[in-house]
Write a protein that binds this DNA or RNA. Structure first.
Lengths: 246, 246
DNA sequence: CGACCGGATAAACATATGTTAATCTTGAAT
DNA sequence: ATTCAAGATTAACATATGTTTATCCGGTCG
């Protein structure tokens, strides 16, 4: 149904207030995209400093927002299908970070001029677009909290719990876990630690029967323990209705 | 001039694109606020979970966005005069964190209904409001980066450099430093470390002649060293024009 | 003037994490 | 099947940071 009707955008805000969009709005969004692109391998989609006249919707796969400094890579955000990855560029115009694909991805492009034209015509839709950028900011704040509060094992547990929940919003989580193509080095970049130490943590989670991360897949074995270690509370994701997981 | 004309809002977006607001827009903003409040002492202005029908502009002083967990306080954002502290509540409706005053503050309140009414009438103004929430998100990302990348001395140096720059945008920085009422315990909450360790760092910055933090004031002695220690690059603040500092 | 209190400073020790260097697995390519 | 490269794992050691406890300092109030 919605999946067939909106092949590009059916996951946008799913589980987080998509129902507040009218069928008309959903159609408007679906038709915004003038181009769709696929990458099968790791690829830098957008570069820091780029001045943009378009924004990017993630349709399939994972992308990360990355800042490189002194030979190191730091992941400051991770996106799942349905996320409007750099809608913020609509107002900011230039990027303060790179956007890179992790594993195979499919993305859609919208010209800012087309968004511009919607402001007076579709105020409710614009509010939902604004809302989606604020969800990103709420996730940013939670990452700040987890980095201030938790040590490496808590950070990894939190990342897993958050990603599982976000994938569940858009129908891509299984009860046993989820597909997740990040390498340990990339997980370390997202947790603010080193690959060596992250490996210690991965093994510890495995040995304690909490979760198993291997071959591009996360298997969650003890959800309660995972949420406890990561101090994960779903409120900041602003999900609607009952959650499938738990 | 603008200070007298807009006593509440003259600092909003100053140094960051305020010039893109028409005189009409500036007047509209100034007249949005139905109430102004002062607190002379530490005070919880808004609480996590609150459902809001209004948002808050910081007119004078400092406020922090705080998350309390397990007896500890974590500062996930810090605001300076001119910041629309919780404009994001306009779209999110409920808060995922507390907002607390640090030292004496003055704040103004706008009803969401009044903002709502502006969407169709003042599209350019709405875009600037959206823009201001995206600036917050850019700062969030930089905090994530600094927490992932830097150890405690770098984090503190970065916080000082960032705050100095943001205060300079709104005309509240001096060439020698700035008034900053955070205690060492609060600085620790903002840097993700303990008061004891933060004290070590404060002393080190003092002993090495980089900066002196005492009696509610930051004195910057060696700006180049400070920026270097904190890996501070101002680009993410999206300031306009030449910078006074440096 | 003295007492008091929040904040700052300090020492000693335990632990998480970083660093360097190597080795081991695994899956893809030939 | 063999080779190869990328990723994962391990060990040994150095260091930053956390923890606990105590002392010191400076302003405020009686």
């Amino acid at each position: 149904m919605s999946r067939e009707a909106y092949p590009l955008s059916h996951r946008f805000l799913r589980g987080r207030g998509r129902s507040q969009l009218s069928a008309d709005d959903c159609g408007t969004i679906e038709n915004l995209f003038h181009d769709v692109e696929r990458f099968t391998t790791a690829h830098t989609i957008l570069e820091r400093g780029d001045v943009l006249d378009q924004s990017t919707l993630l349709i399939e796969g994972f992308v990360a927002r990355v800042i490189r400094e002194e030979g190191k890579r730091h992941i400051v955000a991770l996106h799942v299908p349905g996320d409007f990855v750099d809608l913020h560029a609509f107002a900011l115009k230039r990027l303060d970070h790179d956007v890179v694909s992790i594993g195979p991805v499919q993305i859609g492009y919208v010209k800012h001029a087309r968004l511009e034209a919607l402001i007076p015509k579709k105020p409710q839709l614009m509010r939902m677009l604004w809302f989606s950028t604020l969800l990103d900011a709420a996730i940013h704040r939670e990452w700040i909290l987890k980095l201030e509060q938790l040590s490496a094992d808590g950070r990894l547990a939190h990342l897993i719990a958050e990603t599982w929940q976000r994938l569940d919003f858009v129908g891509l989580a299984q009860p046993t876990g989820f597909a997740f193509p990040l390498t340990q080095a990339e997980l370390a970049d997202a947790c603010g630690t080193t690959p060596i130490h992250l490996n210690r943590v991965v093994r510890k989670l495995r040995e304690t029967g909490v979760a198993d991360i291997s071959r591009g897949r996360v298997s969650v074995l003890d959800h309660a323990a995972l949420k406890d270690i990561g101090r994960f509370n779903t409120a900041y994701l602003y999900g609607q209705g009952p959650l499938h997981l738990d």
